[in-house]
Nucleic acid binder design. Structure first.
Length: 212
DNA sequence: ACCCAGGTGGCCC
DNA sequence: GGGCCACATGGG
């Protein structure tokens, strides 16, 4: 196998099959703008947190119609937002991050759909200026909520790289480049590979977020 | 009673 | 520029 990175993808594909079945919501062929917007908010809820807990917070927001960029931006009761987000942990920072993200979108673009018309490089740079959004969250938002082909380096990816001894350097951009350099720039492939990496790490256990 | 889960910003040197 | 650290919840 000449290209190890791509070869591993083919192996995972053979082992687990179509990745969409593991993440029917996030890794869908076609997603509505509403769903993409909800996913963008969930990426913040799930930072350094189990899916289970993030999902409780997500459902709390959904049930109160606050799983919406516009609604959070216009929300006047911050303490209510805090109590809804609480199960996801970090209640002193996550609600603030949600508000900052929603303010960024509403004030600069007006809607999630408008933001998504930005090109990948610009959109990524802009996201990184928002409080609470680092490289991983930016890439997760772009890959799953804006359908941009950008590779995510998260704990699962790092564990995968470690187990396959693909690298000794664990710098974010070094690893991101390692994957992107060795793969065709294809949205379905980037989403699928990432989902399959998670499937491999979880080995079939655990269920959350309509997920694996 | 521990340990962990899809990170990030703020310190310190 | 890299290395550490607080942050908070619910489940095993």
């Amino acid at each position: 196998m000449q290209n190890i990175v791509y070869g591993l993808y083919l192996e995972l594909l053979k082992k687990y099959g179509n990745p969409v079945k593991y993440w029917p919501q996030w890794c869908a062929i076609k997603k509505s703008w509403k769903l993409k917007e909800e996913i963008s908010l969930e990426t913040i809820l799930v930072q350094r947190t189990s899916w289970r807990n993030a999902e409780i917070a997500s459902k709390n927001l959904k049930n109160t119609r606050l799983l919406s960029i516009r609604r959070i931006y216009e929300n006047k009761d911050f303490q209510r937002l805090v109590s809804l987000v609480k199960p996801a942990g970090f209640y002193n920072t996550k609600p603030k991050r949600l508000v900052e993200f929603c303010r960024f979108i509403c004030q600069n673009y007006g809607s999630w759909q408008n933001f998504c018309s930005e090109d990948l490089i610009t959109a990524r740079e802009k996201l990184l200026t928002v409080y609470g959004i680092g490289p991983e969250t930016a890439d997760t938002i772009l890959l799953y909520a804006a359908d941009e082909p950008t590779f995510i380096i998260d704990e699962y990816t790092r564990r995968f790289i470690k187990s396959k001894e693909l690298a000794k350097n664990f710098d974010y951009y070094f690893l991101k480049d390692l994957f992107e350099r060795n793969l065709p720039k294809d949205l379905g492939l980037f989403q699928g590979y990432h989902v399959l990496i998670i499937a491999e790490q979880k080995q079939g256990k655990g269920v959350s977020m309509g997920v694996i």
